[in-house]
Computed example of a mutant assay.
Amino acid sequence: MRNSRLRTAVTTTAVAAGSAGLLAGSLYVVHAEGRSGGQEARLAGDSQAGRRTAAPATGQAAARAARIAGRLGDRTTGAYVDSSGRPVVTVTNATDAAAVRAAGAVPKMTQRSPATLRRMTGALQRAVADIPGTGWAVDPATSKVTVWTDDTVTGTRMAAVRRTTGRMGAAVRMVRIPGRLRTFALGGDAIFGQGARCSLGFNVKRAQQDFFVTAGHCGNEIQNWAADQQGAEALGTTVESDFPGNDFALVQTEQGAEGQSAVNLYNGQAQQITEAGDAVVGQRVFRSGSTTGVHSGSVTATNATVNFAEGTVTGMIQTTVCAEPGDSGGPLFAGSTALGLTSGGSGDCQTGGVTFFQPVTEALQVFGAEIG
């Protein structure tokens, strides 16, 4: 990632406060070099800044589905929210089905076992991970593995992907993503460091000290952060960073965040963030960014693998929320729940797109931190 291309979008913890120390946001790392009106994944229910930012109707259902699936562990292929807004959890036996039903969700028997699907994704990891522009995730609704390729995957590389997926037969669904998956970020309400611009993630606390989380590819490049290009208003220092593999970084702040975290709605208001949670397929979500404001869409996959030119990132959230350069790092959230940090994708907010997010729960667990 070249500093000359690195810019960001920022969210604020408390818009009324106007303090540089209260900035929050993260980095969007993709640049779509091509556009197409026939994209597989388009923006679902787009929302402009502040137009519709209340907790989505699917929020409680998604949280319930995630909790129940977490209890089942390896005995489920995942959970999702169906078209009626009901929480659905996949199961492999009648005992688990009864437990899911008793917990207030709809059980669905999987067509393929979790072990079978894990073997398939393991085979993809061994055979395809070194091909940039590819990725995959398990679709719990169909018990299939969705494998995507961008426009750069052609010739012998596409042949290699098809050889691997061909051996899996009907258990694989192939999707073409127009454009190019690429680490790239442009600016907005920027924060600065080492001649580059990035944006912050959510304000967090660790051992009663103030930090913020952001994208790891930013933390890899930037050590000292400031609110202005001249570096006069110091924001903090990167203390930990992980990319590729994951895409998160931890920055210790110079100014206290007063234990709060919120998302800028770009209408003079802020959405308070009080907790972190796990995204669920079918859930309605929002992303905030300085180029295009607030947009919404739905989660299409969790635990997704994305192969960027810089390396493979695993465990990602895939969505239909659009993003553009300058929305870099805008937080993914649902109501007052933090879900992710923008990491990459393809497309724009004119034609729609596919965007991937680093789950914030994983970052918090690794860093031993919690939402401020």
Score class of each variant (00 low, 15 high):
Ala160Thr: 15
Asp46Val: 01
Val313Asp: 02
Gly187Asp: 14
Ala62Gln: 12
Thr274Lys: 14
Ala159Gln: 10
Asn246Ile: 03
Gly166Glu: 08
Ser47Met: 02
Gly282Pro: 07
Ala63Leu: 12
Ala102Gln: 14
Thr58His: 06
Ala137Tyr: 13
Gln318Ala: 07
Asn303Trp: 10
Gly193Thr: 01
Ala16Glu: 14
Thr314Glu: 12
Arg162Asp: 14
Ala54Leu: 06
Phe243Glu: 01
Asp278Thr: 12
Pro107Thr: 03
Asp82Arg: 06
Trp225Ala: 01
Phe211Lys: 03
Tyr28Lys: 05
Leu23Phe: 13
Phe356Ser: 06
Thr142Pro: 04
Gly38Cys: 09
Gln60Tyr: 05
Val213Ala: 14
Gly216Arg: 04
Thr13Tyr: 08
Gly289Tyr: 10
Arg176Ser: 08
Ser47Arg: 04
Val299His: 01
Ile131Ala: 04
Ala170Glu: 00
Ser328Trp: 05
Thr142Trp: 05
Thr134Pro: 00
Thr95Gly: 15
Gly352Met: 03
Gly193Asn: 00
Thr110Asn: 09
Asp228Gln: 07
Thr53Gln: 01
Ala171Asp: 01
Ile317Trp: 00
Val204Gly: 02
Arg167Val: 04
Glu362Trp: 12
Arg86Thr: 05
Thr8Lys: 06
Tyr28Glu: 06
Ala16Gln: 14
Phe212Ala: 15
Arg5Gln: 14
Thr53His: 08
Lys205Asp: 09
Arg118Pro: 01
Gly293Leu: 14
Arg162Tyr: 12
Thr253Gly: 06
Thr302Arg: 12
Arg197Glu: 13
Thr146Ala: 12
Val161Asp: 11
Glu324Cys: 04
Gln283Ile: 05
Val161Tyr: 11
Pro178Glu: 03
Gly50Leu: 13
Phe202Ile: 07
Lys205Cys: 05
Thr238Gln: 14
Ile177Asn: 05
Ala309Ser: 10
Phe192Gly: 01
Gly78Pro: 15
Ala334His: 07
Gln209Met: 08
Ala215Asn: 15
Ala54Pro: 01
Ala99His: 15
Ala94His: 07
Gln223Gly: 09
Ala137Trp: 11
Ile131Ser: 05
Ala57Val: 02
Asn220Asp: 10
Ala215Asp: 11
Leu186Met: 12
Leu339Thr: 01
Ala14His: 07
Ser36Lys: 00
Thr90Met: 15
Ala49Thr: 09
Gly326Ala: 07
Ser83Cys: 00
Gly293Thr: 10
Ala249Leu: 10
Ala20Lys: 11
Cys198Trp: 04
Glu370Ile: 00
Trp148Glu: 01
Leu72Thr: 02
Ala262Gln: 08
Cys349Val: 00
Leu265Ile: 13
Gln272Lys: 14
Gln269Leu: 15
Val89Tyr: 09
Trp148Leu: 09
Asp210Met: 05
Leu117Lys: 06
Ala323Pro: 09
Gly34Gln: 14
Gln269Gly: 12
Gly135Asp: 06
Asp348Gln: 05
Val239Thr: 12
Val161His: 07
Gly193Arg: 01
Ala185Asp: 05
Thr76Gly: 09
Gly195Ala: 09
Arg2Thr: 07
Cys198Arg: 00
Leu124Arg: 01
Ala14Trp: 10
Ala49Val: 03
Gly268His: 07
Thr253Ile: 05
